[in-house]
């Protein structure tokens, strides 16, 4: 399944995506696309035991520059996934999460 967690949303400060349940999934991959804005953002995958309290999955930071599409897998997650992001400047983002059983 593919979920679009942000659809051309503009951010100029740090943000996190809405919680998404993936208890049924064994594989997950993020696709983060900057479709507008001249800023840069740094993304980290987060996991949660309950969809309310979050921690980083790993120490990998993923930098996305203007106009770029960047993708990375998430492995060993629990039942929830989200991204947190630090933003420099302004970014317009489209975020897909592709998950498979």
């Amino acid at each position: 399944m593919t979920a679009v967690l942000e659809r051309d949303t503009t951010f100029d400060t740090r943000f996190a995506t809405e919680p998404y349940e993936v208890a049924w999934a064994g594989e997950a991959r993020w696709f983060v696309q900057h479709i507008g804005g001249d800023g840069t953002a740094t993304y980290v995958t987060q996991v949660s035991p309950d969809g309310i309290t979050w921690c980083d999955l790993d120490d990998q930071e993923h930098v996305v520059e203007p106009g770029k599409l960047v993708s990375w897998p998430a492995a060993g997650f629990g039942h929830w996934l989200r991204l947190r992001a630090k933003v420099e400047g302004s970014v317009q983002v489209r975020i897909h999460l592709a998950v498979k059983a």
């Binding site: 659809r7 809405e18 998404y20 349940e21 208890a23 049924w24 035991p49 309950d50 309290t53």
Partner: peptide
């Protein structure tokens, strides 16, 4: 523009 994707939920709670 923001009606959110439906999720398959195991009804997980804290």
């Amino acid at each position: 523009r923001d009606f959110r994707p439906p999720q398959l939920s195991a009804c997980n709670f804290f």
